[in-house]
Design a protein around this nucleic acid. Structure first.
Lengths: 225, 225
DNA sequence: GTCTATAAATTGATAGAC
DNA sequence: GTCTATCAATTTATAGAC
């Protein structure tokens, strides 16, 4: 039976957090479908799985929990997906795609290269929830499965490379100290984000995240001309 | 029945990784006990739980797995501990204690304050295994339990504070730029460590960890006089 | 202290009706 | 496409013998 609650949750989530297949997000029909609450079963399963993977990880997410949150029955789930790994693959791919899209929007926005890097780091984030993609690196079953692991690996390789490119650009334009190494600096900045989530969750406060990012940007500021 | 394999694994682990109750580690009797393989059941249970929490997290660690790895039976486990949360509390406390002891040894070692901070960051670590304490922040069941969470929170608060103290010391002695903020810089450095583990696991290579630490130390170097 | 027996609930799926 | 029934294995214990 259709679950209005499940659909509304998955839908509201998608709408307000911008989570939807790339390209589809700006489609008026998609918005309408969300508002009406008629997101199809397959999509609700994917969204619910994304939420649960984010909150509880792969090991902590049961098919039963996915079914309850999505409002789909046992039969529906196994009709649309072969099982838990198959569902996780769809969910992880979607989360990776969204992280990339949102970062890219920041990177190609206005401002100097350093401003865009700072903007990305300072962007509003729900620090206590952590990173939906980075979180998966702590899941042994995800890391042990080459297919589940690939999107995680690719996301961080892309992100670090993209930031290194912006830093190289800033260095070339004389915005940044010529002695600074773009690759290792980019790695440090991505690490501060991921580690900031750890500190925030440990402290039980998003402030710890902000402080770490702040410290990193002040360190970087010393190398800006 | 006594399990030589379980004992040897837990023991070898303790010996070579320096995992043992603080103070006990340097006791000749403790070494003898380890070599003979006569670590008591309670201790083997704690060590096995520590390993499993590190590898698979709280949700991914079953009492059955703990019993198998420690070589202890069902009855033994429930004789020494009330259940899984009780065992986890002992294991987490031990891991937190050890992290702190090892860090403190680095912080009170030789060299200038900045050298000791760099030394701590560059210290050899098994990056692909991640941080036994930081890992727990991703475990919803650990974070939801105030008792299990406290050692995690305290460990990071202590570590960040301790690093901030060293940076303040370096600033006071003129070793470090007076404009640098010790608290946020310390938070950034701890975040780089924790995030470095995420990058290493995502890339499947410890090099990603080293690169992030390297980037952070180069950024810091720009503020050293 | 350690062992075996037992058990209620959950996990991750398959089978087949509708 | 969705539903219910069923199932073997695992989880997290408790009880009580030795």
């Amino acid at each position: 039976m259709f679950s209005a609650v499940g659909a509304a949750a998955a839908c509201g989530f998608s709408l307000f957090d911008g989570r939807a297949p790339s390209g589809v997000r700006r489609c008026p029909l998609y918005l309408l479908v969300c508002i009406v609450g008629a997101m199809d079963t397959r999509e609700r399963l994917v969204q619910s799985t994304r939420e649960l993977l984010w909150e509880r990880g792969y090991v902590g997410t049961s098919p039963k929990a996915i079914q309850e949150r999505s409002g789909a029955g046992q039969g529906s789930m196994y009709h649309h997906f072969r099982g838990k790994p198959d569902l996780a693959l769809a969910a992880i791919g979607r989360s990776a795609e969204e992280l990339r899209d949102r970062a890219e929007a920041e990177f190609t926005g206005p401002g100097t290269a350093v401003e865009r890097v700072s903007g990305y780091l300072r962007r509003e984030r729900d620090a206590l929830r952590g990173c939906p993609v980075g979180r998966l690196t702590q899941d042994p079953d995800v890391m042990a499965d080459a297919e589940l692991r690939r999107p995680v690996e690719e996301t961080f390789a892309w992100l670090t490379d993209r930031l290194a490119g912006l830093l190289a650009e800033a260095r070339a334009s004389g915005e940044l100290d010529a002695a600074l190494d773009p690759a290792s600096t980019a790695a440090a900045l991505v690490a501060v984000l991921q580690g900031g989530y750890v500190l925030a969750r440990a402290a039980g406060s998003a402030e710890a995240y902000t402080r770490a990012v702040d410290g990193a940007l002040r360190l970087l500021a010393g190398h800006v001309r």
